[in-house]
Design a protein around this nucleic acid. Structure first.
Lengths: 384, 384
DNA sequence: ATGAAAGCGCTAACAT
DNA sequence: ATGTTAGCGCTTTCAT
């Protein structure tokens, strides 16, 4: 409380309303009214963040009152509320969200772990996640594993230390052990898997039509009259790799084509491996007449390389891939693909995570299949 | 302190060491020794985060001691330190970084505002930022403005509410007013601009060789014998647009070519505008014989469209672009570009921001030019 | 060597 | 309608 200018003590001073933005005081002993000069409580200049305490000091009210005013609580007089809100605006006060969440033990932040931001698929997913998170008032913290198990572990650890309210994960291709994840899941950390999911934990999962898409691509090749269809798959541990291969096999079986071991290779998605595979295939007594690359980039690389070797696409060799990018349209001939919808994957994943977070039921299961779409382009049109 | 099982009071109870992981007590009055049964202090099961308080309770020491042990402070006995660290490991304790930074008013988090994650350039920048931030023990919060001024403002506001320790910004193309930024800068918020920089504030800036690259591209065209070179520029407000145009003009002047207004258009980087521009140019009495698109995507679009129109590239029409992506290699003919190094831009921007943050001198200036590289491909080789 | 207590910004239960 | 206070996890004096 302020000091009375007459008796020089604050013993009997009480607040007596506000006048022209200043707080008015009265000394009960001297009966003197006075206002606080602004020089005594200067608005701090070189300070990035205004706090409710600053506001409380300036206004001469308690921090609780300021808190109430700024949160539009009912039990506060409209005048005080407005005055406080006006001042807050002037000082461009914005609340410290972490302090706010501190009590409830939440940070309004979610963590995302992905292999690589630069891959268009993941960039699309991130975009979807961001959008939903923004709507819900959450912030997003992104980490890249760069396909390293170790980095993934330490990323998750870091996000945990940041006390994220939940985790969205797409595992690295190295990841085969899931103790950390399992542990966190059992402790009740909200968590959702997408794309590179983990079957060892009962988290909600967002998968894509890996099996279905592969089936449709290969079926399309068969219907175009291709007979000897090869598959360029990814690391065999990777679930999407398995699923896409299963779709491939299922199509061959359904149409009674021979399944030939020579036509199936597992690589690491690298360009070198893709080109080497094509070389190997061409040396077979009966080379394949079509190639299904489970990664669109490999498909594009193979198109370029085949052209260089003088192979006619699609007449001599049909090529299809998984995952659509602008690149697939541009390459010559344009690439037939099974189009995924990364943005959608991100939106759904984030939505599901927020469901888990708000339901407090981390054991909720879900298995969402995001539909893709077969886009037929010239690279596979043998008949045309 | 625990209650003595004999006299049922805790008045005379003192801690008397530890035995088999349990804390041993002694009642000074009854001379009774007893240990705390684990049922009384259960290790909390369904709890995501262990706190130092948990550890303190289990060990029967004060939280201050635990804090000291975990932070390797000197004034603590080695035995206690080790015992605490061992327990912390078992409970996989990890500190609440926000609580930690709370006092110092820092969050070990930086904010990034970019137009769009999905653009390969920005994805590359982010990757660079992440890498440097990780090294320094910082986390990164990313926001997309989607080229909207309003979204940018509210993104920055949100990052501020998260109390980020610094900001990395590349403005939206809409952004022409910078009061918010200026205000924050004056308050001392560490801040660095990159790519879409802002000249109204004296922040450190990372620019790329916009002028130089444009000059080199156009010079290359001229040396190849092209005479009537058009430019497809971006929004005129955008600084990079201006700089690249200046580079273009400078090259024309240096080689004594006529500067023709009809050959210079400003668009919005959209495909529609790019194609419409080509149409317009082709209807001129003297159409250009080369096009410099300041955005590589537009260059690619023009190549595709020109081919469709039966125009021979590079013989009839040379095309060059700015910014390199895999796409530029793949398109037919491959595109001559001035290659930027987005990852490098990100690394430098983040490094500079951390310099500002640690120096506490937010007024430090810097103007870094990240070098690019001219990559000559077939789309501009008239002579070949 | 260890404990007690204050404080960072904010909310909420409890007073008045 | 408004003030007082405790407490979220942690660090850091200041005692002991």
């Amino acid at each position: 409380m302020e000091i009375c200018p007459k008796c020089s003590t604050n013993h009997f001073v009480i607040r007596a309303g506000m006048i022209r933005g200043k707080v008015r005081y009265q000394c009960k002993s001297c009966q003197v009214h006075f206002t606080q000069e602004q020089s005594a409580k200067p608005i701090p200049q070189k300070q990035i963040h205004t706090t409710i305490k600053d506001i409380a000091n300036i206004m001469g009210v308690s921090i609780a009152t300021v808190s109430r005013a700024l949160n539009n609580k009912p039990d506060i007089s409209p005048k005080t509320r407005e005055a406080i809100q006006k001042l807050a605006l002037e000082l461009d006060y914005n609340p410290n969200l972490f302090a706010k969440g501190f009590q409830r033990g939440e940070t309004k932040t979610i963590g995302v772990v992905i292999p690589n931001i630069k891959r268009p698929f993941f960039a699309g997913v991130l975009s979807g996640i961001q959008e939903v998170a923004n709507e819900r008032g959450y912030r997003v913290m992104i980490c890249q594993s760069n396909e390293s198990y170790e980095a993934e572990i330490s990323n998750i650890q870091g996000l945990l230390a940041s006390h994220v309210d939940g985790l969205l994960i797409s595992h690295s291709k190295e990841t085969t052990r899931f103790n950390q994840i399992k542990n966190l899941f059992e402790k009740g950390l909200p968590m959702v898997h997408f794309d590179r999911i983990c079957t060892e934990v009962d988290t909600p999962k967002i998968r894509q039509e890996d099996f279905e898409g592969a089936f449709q691509l290969v079926e399309h090749l068969i219907q175009q009259g291709y007979q000897r269809i090869a598959i360029l798959a990814g690391p065999p541990e990777l679930l999407i790799s398995q699923k896409r291969k299963e779709g491939y096999l299922h199509a061959l079986e359904k149409y009674g084509l021979v399944i030939q071991k020579d036509y199936m290779v597992h690589g690491d998605f690298s360009k070198e491996f893709a080109l080497a595979s094509l070389d190997k295939w061409l040396q077979l007594p009966e080379p394949p007449d079509a190639i299904f690359a489970i990664h669109y980039l490999n498909a594009v690389e193979i198109i370029q390389y085949a052209k260089k070797l003088g192979i006619a696409i699609p007449k001599q060799l049909g090529i299809v891939g998984f995952g659509d990018e602008y690149l697939a349209e541009i390459v010559d001939p344009p690439l037939t693909v099974f189009h995924l919808f990364p943005q959608k994957v991100g939106e759904i994943a984030a939505g599901l995570l927020f469901d888990v977070i708000s339901s407090k039921d981390s054991t909720r299961q879900a298995d969402v299949l995001v539909q893709g779409q077969l886009i037929i382009r010239k690279s596979s049109l043998k008949k045309a």
